[in-house]
Design a protein around this nucleic acid. Structure first.
Ligand SMILES: [Mn+2]
Ligand SMILES: [Mn+2]
Ligand SMILES: [Zn+2]
Ligand SMILES: [Zn+2]
Lengths: 137, 137
DNA sequence: AGCTTGCCTTAGACCCTGTCCAATGTAGGG
DNA sequence: CCCTACATTGGACAGGGTCTAAGGCAAGCT
């Protein structure tokens, strides 16, 4: 987290209060906030921060590989600070909560050449859906 | 396809020219059109069809399980008439073209209980990304 | 074949997510 | 402590999608 700020400063980033507070809001595990959620949490600490700055900062963090963008539902994109340990996602179909998961095996191995249509296949992303303990209760 | 229209009529659907033309536009293999694409193709056959009707019809087809919604890129959702044979998708990272693929094995089996966070896991959706033959050339 | 009725369609207003811009502010090197 | 290049801001704008009120028409009934 402070490592993150160090890396960013070394990458020639000006360390502004806005950028710092966006980075702080994104800190943690299983964090997958929308840009609006990032904005309201950031605004709780720094009331004058603008939507545009939040979007700018998120875009830069994604470009630098410090945050990954997750499009789960065709609605707002979610921003995920867990960018250095590759993982997949498990979504609750009722409440929309998201957990990071690490399946076994390589999903790429499950796509036979006969099903590749001549593509050079680079990556596989798995989205699991189910019902979370809270919603099942 | 005409089976589709039969099923829909039996489900109490009024068979209007608009609904027929939307169903026709969606017919085929590896079809993954956006709502706007459906609208312009439908309008080529039935010029007065409205955007609202296309959206209404697509929503109903999805609710009835005759079409599946695919959110590939956080932009417009795509509508897929291949709803009766479960499958996954292979996307070209350059041009966005989409193919239906049928991987081997069950991706659900790759999620150990220790990674399930107490969820009842119902479904796994795999998105492969790569470069298509046309874009590789 | 005509009537009736309730479902469908329509245009356009409206909402949400995200981008862009010109004007203003400020981090950080010299 | 100044300077300036980079960052922030509010507001306009754009794309995708939903909603509504008014009028249209499919299909069952006679
Ligand atoms: Mn994640
Ligand atoms: Mn498909
Ligand atoms: Zn839940
Ligand atoms: Zn391509």
């Amino acid at each position: 987290m402070s490592d993150l700020l160090d890396r960013l400063r070394e990458g020639g980033w000006r360390l502004t209060a806005q950028r710092r507070v966006v980075a702080e809001v994104l800190d943690g595990d299983h964090v997958h906030l929308t840009a609006d959620e990032v904005h309201s949490r950031a605004a709780a600490r720094l009331p004058e921060i603008s939507r545009a700055t939040v979007y700018n900062t998120l875009r830069e963090l994604v470009q630098r590989g410090e945050v990954v963008e997750v499009s789960t539902d065709g609605r707002a994109k979610r921003y995920d600070p867990n960018a250095h340990r590759p993982h997949h996602h498990l979504l609750c179909a009722r409440c929309g909560s998201i957990r990071d998961v690490h399946p076994t095996g390589d999903p790429l191995a499950n796509l036979p050449a006969s099903e590749s249509f001549g593509f050079t296949v680079l990556e596989a992303e798995v989205t699991y859906r189910g019902i979370c303990p809270d919603c099942a209760a």
